[in-house]
């Protein structure tokens, strides 16, 4: 089957995977326990593999990853948020992997250009989602300190979650249905974790975030500088 690949959607999904992969990679050498060190690196590796496939659908993967400016990236603002403490990383994982899992399951069920990748990646992301859900419950229903930190992390990242359900050109997904399923799942996990679903700021709790339009938050520029600096400093270098 030959289908024209919608570049906008390929960049959106590819950039989500690439940027989150890089953020998770920042935990290497500083995760709280060895098992988490390995887990976060493995999740990062899965995402990097997905990013390579998706960006290759849109163009040259290396050029896209290393030579674009900040405003050309189409990832969600959620995935570019700094790791914060471990609770922040887990909250970001919970919000994103639930979204990605629901999205990929939908894309895998269709016959569009993303179906092959989605059918493969949905099985990987199921493990990411499970990992995030287990940690959310463990931290939320843990000690007083872990509960409070987990609640704080959910609240801090909540304002970036609305963007996930905005339409993306070339993605045949019903945003409102996706949001309903996402809310139900995340709400259920938070309840089990004795946490409460954040209410978000009154000023547009669900409208903040425009990463898909190329508008990013301040920490993203610094992340990109680190991610791209080697490639830009030594163009064309090989090992």
């Amino acid at each position: 089957m030959t289908t024209t690949v919608p570049t906008t959607a390929a960049l959106a999904l590819g950039d989500d995977a690439l940027v989150l992969s890089h953020r998770l990679g920042e935990w290497a050498g500083r995760a709280p326990v060895l098992e988490e060190e390995v887990a976060l690196a493995n999740i990062a590796l899965d995402l990097l593999g997905q990013a390579r496939v998706l960006l290759s659908l849109a163009g040259d993967e290396d050029e896209l990853a290393y030579l674009r400016e900040e405003r050309a990236f189409r990832n969600l603002q959620l995935v570019e948020q700094p790791n914060g403490d471990f609770a922040h990383t887990i909250a970001r994982q919970l919000f994103f992997s639930t979204y990605q899992h629901l999205l990929y399951a939908r894309l895998a069920a269709g016959d569009g250009p993303f179906a092959p990748l989605a059918a493969k990646a949905v099985k990987e992301v199921a493990y990411h989602r499970d990992h995030a859900e287990q940690w959310t419950v463990r931290l939320g229903d843990g000690t007083e300190v872990s509960h409070e930190r987990m609640q704080r992390a959910c609240a801090a990242l909540w304002r970036y979650t609305g963007e996930m359900f905005q339409p993306v050109e070339g993605l045949d997904v019903e945003g409102e249905k996706l949001r309903a399923d996402w809310l139900e799942s995340v709400g259920d996990v938070l309840r089990r974790a004795t946490l409460t679903l954040p209410e978000g700021p009154q000023s547009g709790a669900w409208t903040a975030g425009a990463g898909r339009q190329g508008l990013h938050t301040e920490p993203f520029g610094r992340m990109l500088a680190e991610m791209q600096h080697l490639h830009r400093s030594h163009p064309g270098a090989t090992w």
């Binding site: 899992h101 199921a126 493990y127 989602r129 499970d130 859900e133 843990g142």
Partner: peptide, 8 residues
């Protein structure tokens, strides 16, 4: 998807 186990 894999079965979810939400043990603490």
């Amino acid at each position: 998807p894999v079965a979810l186990e939400l043990g603490p």
